[in-house]
Design a protein around this nucleic acid. Structure first.
Lengths: 109, 109
DNA sequence: AATATTAATCGTAATATTGCAATGTAATTA
DNA sequence: TAATTACATTGCAATATTACGATTAATATT
């Protein structure tokens, strides 16, 4: 196999898993951190910052864009990427709900 | 290739990515939600709840245990799984720091 | 002791991911 | 118009993931 059985899970579970999967790579974490720090949107300097090839960075950016975590605007020759405000907030909300479902250790284990 | 270049990223980036990867599957989200709700630790009823084979559930549990998000205690024939309190809190903390690095839309894009 | 129950592990098939060189595309500059 | 710049896309090769049947290991029950 190798194919996730998405049909047996809820929309919310699948959506959260998809977003977390997009975050689940150190390069994409690094890319997002850089985008957040360099508030004025960055473009190609990521290739210089991280030690990955241009094609690889481009692929990671596409993945982040596909799930809606970032957005890109064409600025002449270069492309300006930045966080997608609404989706970012939604992720913060839903992940927060998920992780705070845990109310401390129960009487077991 | 197919091999993440972990050596070019920081400890924190790699650790967060590893934890998020463990969460980045609907089955594992569902498993964790169930463990959190059924506060008294559950064991094999996961196989009945989710529509996945026993071997598959067992594999997902191992992944969650490997990254330290859950812990398992042998209770006679069955095994009792529950959230790993400290690591769960650490994830909440570090993810929170990460996602709250974003301070709203800047003047660009 | 024989059998049943619970869960881990192994082996395998199908598919996905990671990374890069090479190439393509579109806007900019010379 | 030709060359350049900035990214995207394509096409691999290497490796990882997902799922499950079959088997194994360990404890419980009869």
């Amino acid at each position: 196999m190798g194919l996730t059985k998405t049909e047996i899970f809820t929309e919310e579970q699948n959506r959260l898993a998809t977003l977390l999967k997009a975050l689940a790579h150190p390069a994409r974490i690094a890319i997002l951190q850089r985008i957040m720090v360099v508030n004025t949107c960055i473009c190609g300097d990521l290739v210089g910052e991280l030690g990955l090839a241009q094609a690889t960075i481009s692929q990671h950016l596409r993945e982040l864009k596909n799930v809606g975590l970032i957005q890109g605007t064409i600025e002449g020759v270069s492309v300006c990427y930045c966080i997608h405000p609404e989706n970012w907030k939604l992720l913060e909300l839903h992940f927060g709900e998920f992780i705070r479902t845990y109310k401390g250790p129960a009487k077991c284990c």
